[in-house]
Amino acid sequence: MTTYVLRRLLQAVPLLLGITVVSFAILKAIPGGPMAAYEGNPNITDEDIRRLEHALGLDQPVHIQYLSWLTAFLTGDWGYSYSSHRAVLTEIMERFPKTVYLMGTVYVVTLLVAIPIGILTAVRQYSWFDHIVTGTTFAFLSTPTFWLGLLLIIVFGLQLRLLPLGGMATLGTDFDLLDRVRHLILPVATLSLVGIGRYVRFLRASMLETLTQDYLRTARAKGLGERIVVARHALKNASIPLVTVAALDLPELFVGALVTEQIFGWPGMGRLYWDAATRSDYPVIMGFLAVAASLIILANLAADVFYAYLDPRIRYA
């Protein structure tokens, strides 16, 4: 197992390198650039633009720019944002906990709701409960996140005035747990409602599959109660694909749900990226993509390892 993990990690290095090269190439191929921010400023001269381009190293050949970015990046210097001039690492670390806070809650809520529903719909397949719940989760699964978010804002924020429209906390007040929770409700609901359907479907499908397996028949034949059969035997096996999917979703915890953060004004990673992308803030974009890609690679590895751990039939050499 250890050798397997090590080999996978080793393989990740050229993968990441490739990703940074491709990202950088795309960035550089995009017409326009960071200097666009200065248009409209009547006091800026072409000379100013050239001076700034030079100061930011934008007048160098592309491959030199990439190599200097890469060498700096490898030594822990992720560069400075073109627009705020702050260190990229500082910017990312400032947003990181806030995204984890939102997405972590989403993750926990989603799983807490989805697991019991998934089990129940499978155990009571084709009951009215199954139909209603499967139908509902299916409907949410088919709803664009941004539309759901907007509808929730209209109903609960604007019409009923029950919940705040956005942000992490009421500004100008001291820390207040209830206030924090109130701010979490709408964004978490938006993302969870869409996410729950997904997990329910996975769990239901794999539960149904395991419930008909021979060893469960044996267990039942031995006179074990259905409840115990489900809890002890079926669930364990049925959770394998669920764990895999959950692990694959982990990067989202960090990368954030861009659209949702955008709609609810959540100061997380997604908004950082959106702002950087629209400003052609190359160092921030590169830092972000490198982090995101690393996380995805690690999550894939974690999923495979979990899978092997939970399913004794799988062995990695």
Partner: peptide, 16 residues
């Protein structure tokens, strides 16, 4: 239309 980062870049090299 084009994003303002291009259309309003006011930059010859950026292809405004």
């Amino acid at each position: 239309n084009q994003p303002s980062s291009v259309f309003l870049s006011g930059s010859w090299s950026a292809g405004d």
